[in-house]
Write a protein that binds this DNA or RNA. Sequence first.
DNA 1: TTGTAAGCGTTATCAT
DNA 2: ATGATAACGCTTACAA
Lengths: 344, 344
Amino acid sequence: MGVTIRDIAKISGVGISTVSRVLNRSGPVSSETREKVLQAVQSTNYIPNNSARSLKTASSRNIAILTKTITNPFFHKLIRIIEHEVDLRGYSVILQDASGAADEIDSAIELAQDRNLCGVIIIGGKFSYSKESLVQLGIPCVLLTVSAGDTVDKALYSSVIINDEEAGFQATKQLIEMGHRKIGFVYHGQSDTAQENPNDLRFYGYCRALRESGLPVDPTLHDFGNLIAGSGYAVGYEAMQKLYAANPDVTAVFCFSDELAIGVAKAALSLGLKIPDDISIIGFDGTEIMEYFNPSLDTLYQPADQMALTAVETLFHMMQGGESSHTVFNAVLLKRGSCKPRLR
Amino acid sequence: MGVTIRDIAKISGVGISTVSRVLNRSGPVSSETREKVLQAVQSTNYIPNNSARSLKTASSRNIAILTKTITNPFFHKLIRIIEHEVDLRGYSVILQDASGAADEIDSAIELAQDRNLCGVIIIGGKFSYSKESLVQLGIPCVLLTVSAGDTVDKALYSSVIINDEEAGFQATKQLIEMGHRKIGFVYHGQSDTAQENPNDLRFYGYCRALRESGLPVDPTLHDFGNLIAGSGYAVGYEAMQKLYAANPDVTAVFCFSDELAIGVAKAALSLGLKIPDDISIIGFDGTEIMEYFNPSLDTLYQPADQMALTAVETLFHMMQGGESSHTVFNAVLLKRGSCKPRLR
DNA sequence: TTGTAAGCGTTATCAT
DNA sequence: ATGATAACGCTTACAA
């Protein structure tokens, strides 16, 4: 169908290996010859076939983004930036939603081998990583927004995360300092795995802040039983309804994500509560919608751009044989007025 | 590195073509032999190399999603569903943001050849399509949410769109029937291309409704000059500020997207206007956030699931040699109470 | 029903 | 500095 390297060789009157050398700068070529070849490439619109190259070099110039909770707007932001950065480097992004897969790392392994992937960035989710699976994966892997925990050798993968526990602590502490005593925490429920995940970590931060202030960790403030399977908005909405039913005297809610926070806020407003007069709300992620919501909502900003960029840089570093690395960013509290000191 | 078809052949004591036949059901194999081969595949965890297959068959089992305005939440929804459907069919999705590219169809052509793509779904944007480029692309192509217009042979591509003009007409007409006379329209500005695009089409619908009711098409109600380059939220916010400054007596706004509508709503609220008492607002897309915004906002729902599914089905139909097709869905007005009859 | 062998379009090794 | 030529792992005639 298309024009091949052989055509270019023929047209420019050189051998195919010379063409290859020109295209890949993989060897010495006289500037004269180089010109002729480049001419031919131009005039024919020649584009090297990546499958052939991939077959030969066992490297496809494809990296995959693997994700579970693909509905989260914050993840969209990450994906968008990753795609851009990867594109800049001449690679393509394969998007793979692992929501369905029981063991998503396995689907990554399969994809990696099948598609000659050069690397994988895994976003979010509660993945069950193990030394074995990471080794079997066989290609550089960066975990973004999650960590594999201390049980796995840190050299086997890289990670880019936020200081989840500390951020959860700070948000809660701030609410406490504002005089709040009944502080709800809305998240996706504590996980049963031994894995560290943002969900649990932020919860631990929440608990630590309460404990340090001598406040009880009251299950009715964070455990709402089974919630509907739906978007973060819907989950947050339902959680807030249950929270309020169990604790009409709740005065503040800290939410695991902005998505949940909006659901919580909407439910609060529907219950006739005023934000921040009756109830203070803090979200997590720092997505733009939080500013445009009515009223604007406080949120812990995660530097999505930097995190995504770091993930890509780290991945390419590893792809070039570099060491793995583990970066932790700090969340920044953006105050928009949805939190207010509690008057006695 | 990995185990190859030759290994499987050796292990199961057959020829490699037999293995291939088993794996692809591409020829007769005795069930006995088949078993042996399958055994070997199982025990070795053999995964065929897609690059080799792709090189040989000139088909990569990859399809690409090309998009410009990748920030739009409605597009995220489409992408998510497409990815899922494509995955179900054993193919992978390459995500390509063409925001930067001057001529995005060119980057599609390059990608198509380079990556042996099997098909492309192009979402949104104002692409400059031409017969030539579509022909040169050489692979099945589905335009989602946009059309190439009447100048291009409909056989060269498929499309899945919404009835933009009619929906714009209906939304505006409803506002008129509610008694509104000064109705703003916030969109991304009329394009200069000859291309049909949703932006212009909804605007035409807006104009038609006004004309049919004998109302003037007042530029100060839809032309806000140069707006900041930012998210839809930010653009909507600024547009509403300008709209109100020029027309303090505006009583309704129809927005091209939900994203814009939220920016518009936020600006209106900041200006001290009450929704819907002082101003009625309608968005477009039917994204979930419209329900959770405070107050909930009316929107023209686009059936994202059906549209994405249809796009994938159409693409695969074409990939199997089928004809192109052009599907138009109808937008449905979801009333949430952000529009109210205007009292004289 | 099965195996042999010839490519697919590259890259890379080796002579020249 | 350049050009044959042998892989890479697979599919697919064609032979057996």
